[in-house]
């Protein structure tokens, strides 16, 4: 059986935004901290650390998951996508990011990386979502700046453009 002592650090290998990465993690290191402090990928934000605020949401094997509620050691060998992996280059925006900018769907931007990752899975599975479905998806994220209206508008616009409406 695979066992790691509490004071040991072991190599964890992931594919981060399409690139093979490796770093050391002790058993209790959250994935969110591994991304930020070990792999130096600061796009993923850490808020409440108990699964409520949604700021740290990343895609693990394509699914939106809280990076504060899973340990780095658990995702060894998995595919991780974060906000850094959405646009093709740092000076470009995806359609969703551009729509967020246009509709003022962020102000301080702390919650935005997590919301964008949830939207990525959500829009892949719901190409033509209703506003109720969008708002249901957003219950998993806290935004204290926008009142969510701009976020909903941005998601609706991108979905409509993609589904050819």
């Amino acid at each position: 059986m695979f066992e790691v002592a509490c004071d040991a650090s072991i190599p964890v290998r992931v594919t981060l935004n399409g690139v093979a990465r490796e770093g050391l993690a002790s058993p209790r290191m959250q994935l969110a901290d591994f991304l930020r402090h070990v792999l130096r990928a600061y796009g993923t934000h850490v808020g409440c650390e108990h699964g409520i605020c949604g700021a740290c949401t990343v895609l693990i094997d394509g699914r939106a998951v809280r990076a504060c509620m899973i340990f780095a050691i658990q995702v060894d060998g998995m595919d991780i996508r974060t906000v850094e992996g959405l646009a093709a280059s740092p000076d470009e925006l995806t359609a969703l990011q551009a729509a967020f900018k246009k509709h003022h769907a962020l102000q301080c931007g702390f919650c935005t990386p997590g919301i964008l990752m949830s939207c990525t899975q959500f829009l892949a599975e719901h190409p033509a979502p209703t506003e109720a479905e969008i708002r249901e998806m957003l219950t998993g994220h806290l935004c204290r700046c926008t009142g969510y209206k701009g976020i909903v508008e941005a998601i609706k616009e991108v979905a409509a453009a993609k589904s050819g409406a």
Partner: peptide, 21 residues
């Protein structure tokens, strides 16, 4: 907050999991 330290075991079967418990 961060968890208190713990050791980690990863059983690959239910028999291994109940042995660990």
């Amino acid at each position: 907050m961060k968890p208190a330290p713990f050791a980690y075991v990863r059983p690959l079967s239910i028999a291994e999991a109940v042995a660990a418990l």
